[in-house]
Simulated scan of single mutants.
Amino acid sequence: MTKIKNIGVLTSGGDSPGMNAAIRAVVRASLYYNIKVTGITRGYEGLIQADFTPMDGKSVGNIIQRGGTILKTARCDAFRTKEGRALAHKNLVESDIDALVVIGGDGTFTGADIFCKEYDFPIIGLPGTIDNDLVGTDFTIGYDTAINTVVHAVDKIRDTAESHDRLFIVEVMGRDSGLIALRSGIGVGAEAILIPEAQVGSEELVHRLETGRKDKASKIIIVAEGDEAGGAYVVGETLKEKFPNADIRISVLGHIQRGGKPSCMDRVLASRLGVAAVEALIAGKTDVMAGQVNKEIVFTPFSQTIKHIDAHDITPTWLKLVEILSM
Rank of each mutant, 00 (worst) to 15 (best):
L126N: 11
E118M: 08
N132K: 07
I186F: 00
V150W: 04
G105Q: 01
D144G: 02
M173G: 09
S177Q: 09
Y143H: 15
R175E: 12
F168A: 10
G187E: 08
L134W: 07
G105S: 02
D176G: 03
I124V: 14
V102R: 04
N148G: 02
L100S: 11
E162L: 00
G125P: 14
I169S: 10
G187H: 06
D131E: 13
L179M: 11
G105I: 00
T140L: 08
N148Y: 07
V150H: 05
G142T: 13
S184Y: 00
E197V: 05
R175V: 02
L100H: 09
T137D: 15
V188M: 04
L100Q: 13
V102S: 11
H152Q: 15
V188C: 07
T129S: 15
L134F: 08
G185F: 03
G128T: 12
I103V: 15
L167K: 05
A192M: 09
V102H: 06
D133E: 13
T140C: 15
E94S: 04
D133H: 07
V102G: 06
I180V: 08
D96A: 13
G136D: 14
D159S: 11
E191S: 15
C116T: 15
T145F: 01
F109S: 09
I124N: 07
H164I: 02
N132W: 11
G111L: 00
P122H: 13
I186G: 00
M173V: 02
F121Q: 12
D106M: 01
L179I: 01
P122Y: 14
E118W: 00
L182P: 04
D176Y: 14
T149I: 04
A146C: 14
D120Q: 06
I180Y: 04
G125Q: 13
C116Y: 15
G187N: 07
S184V: 00
A161V: 07
A99W: 05
F109K: 02
T145A: 01
D159I: 02
E171R: 04
D113F: 00
I103L: 06
A112S: 15
Y119H: 11
F121R: 10
E94L: 03
D106F: 00
F115D: 14
I124M: 12
G174Y: 07
L194M: 12
I193M: 08
D159P: 03
L182M: 13
E118A: 09
V135T: 15
S163E: 03
S184T: 02
P127L: 13
V172E: 14
Y119K: 10
G111T: 03
F121V: 12
S95Q: 12
L126M: 10
Y143I: 01
I114G: 08
I169P: 09
K156P: 01
N91S: 08
E94F: 01
I186E: 05
A153R: 08
V101G: 07
D131W: 03
G142E: 08
D159K: 06
I124W: 12
T140K: 05
F121M: 13
D96P: 01
D165K: 06
R166H: 06
D176N: 14
V135M: 12
A161N: 10
D96F: 08
D96L: 03
A190L: 07
H164A: 06
V188H: 05
I103A: 10
T140F: 07
G142V: 10
L134K: 11
D131Q: 09
P196I: 01
D98V: 04
L179T: 04
L100E: 11
T129L: 05
D165N: 15
L194G: 12
V93C: 06
